[in-house]
């Protein structure tokens, strides 16, 4: 250990120097605590993966189930009937249908609103709308579920009689309303991050506001917008309360938004709401479903990360 000794430091500070050993001990303790925090987050992921893998494995070892049927089967009937079927596709199609309905509304609407906010709206309007979006993003999802059940479903049924009491469209529209503030807010952030000089360059060439917004700014912000879209999709795929309330509880392999479906999250809630001390195949099946869901969102996150990394390379 080298200590630096000044030859003649000006006789300014008085008092005793603090103990260096104590300082070192304190620093190491704090460092250990902080590393502990980091380890905790890693451990969380690891535990999720281990639990899902172990329990899903236990599920596939059961006599009634086969892994092949799980990933290829088109029938999911774990609770009713003499013969139980565990084919995941009806649940996946339920999730996809709700997500599709939600995204086909939320993404275009959110993006257009974001372009308007970023390129057209007056600063005062934006100053009001941005915090409002933040508040809306914080509305609990159970509220949207309630809205779907009490307003959207009756509305749809009034428009067209084909809609069921529970239907995918209603849940999907509610998920769309839920995702709108996220899509708008994040896309607007991405659009605003585009350097001014780019806009000025385009205006300097005589482009209209529309041409600047659509041909220059939006492409430049594309990776940020895509990341926002992916986040919204991940939220829609993982959304639970809305689908548990409004989508129904009968898994069916359909792409008809008027019919009742059961997305993956809805099934998990159904199982855990039932008798939880039941350790039959249907209980373990929820872990296999959760593992599928986790893999889907993980994939979306990783793609989003890739897109964002590339985005950084473009601008720095």
């Amino acid at each position: 250990m080298t200590t630096i000794t000044a030859q003649s430091p000006p006789a300014l500070p008085q008092g005793k120097p603090k103990s260096k050993a104590l300082r070192r001990v304190r620093e190491s303790c704090i460092m250990a605590g902080l590393i502990g925090c980091g380890v905790f987050s890693i451990a969380t992921t690891a535990t999720i993966i281990v639990i899902l893998a172990v329990e899903a494995f236990r599920f596939f070892r059961l006599d009634e189930v086969s892994f092949w049927e799980f990933i290829s089967g088109t029938k999911w009937s774990p609770l009713l009937g003499a013969e139980k079927h565990f084919g995941i596709w009806p649940l996946i199609s339920g999730t996809l249908l709700v997500t599709l309905v939600a995204m086909s509304v939320a993404l275009p609407l959110g993006l257009i609103t974001a372009i308007w906010l970023s390129e057209y709206a007056k600063p005062k309007v934006r100053a009001v709308i941005k915090p409002v979006l933040e508040v809306l993003a914080g509305i609990p999802t159970v509220v949207f579920g309630f809205f779907a059940l009490t307003v959207i479903t009756p509305g749809l049924r009034w428009i067209h009689e084909g809609f069921g009491v529970y239907n995918a469209a209603s849940a999907g529209l509610a998920v769309a309303v839920m995702c709108l503030p996220i899509v708008t807010s994040l896309s607007e952030d991405a659009l605003r991050a585009v350097p001014r000089s780019l806009r000025e360059g385009a205006f300097g060439l005589g482009a209209t506001r529309f041409e600047v917004a659509v041909r220059v700014v939006t492409p430049a912000a594309l990776s940020g917008i895509v990341a926002a879209f992916l986040l919204a999709i991940a939220r829609a795929v993982g959304e639970t309360m809305i689908v548990a309330l409004a989508a129904g509880a009968s898994p069916s392999l359909t792409m008809d938004p008027r019919s009742e479906v059961q997305p993956m999250t809805g099934y998990m809630v159904q199982i855990f709401l039932g008798d939880a001390s039941n350790f039959g195949p249907e209980y373990y099946s929820s872990y296999a479903v959760a593992a599928t869901l986790f893999l889907m969102t993980l994939l979306l996150t990783l793609i989003g990360h890739r897109v964002r990394v590339r985005y950084r390379q473009v601008y720095e």
């Binding site: 300014l12 500070p13 008085q14 008092g15 005793k16 120097p17 603090k18």
Partner: peptide, 23 residues
């Protein structure tokens, strides 16, 4: 800075602050 490195009374600290500001 003094608070980081030194153990001292309030009076001593006041003195350090005053002298430093004077310098």
């Amino acid at each position: 800075g003094p608070r980081l490195h030194l153990r001292m009374s309030r009076g001593e600290l006041n003195q350090i602050v005053e002298q430093s500001l004077r310098r």
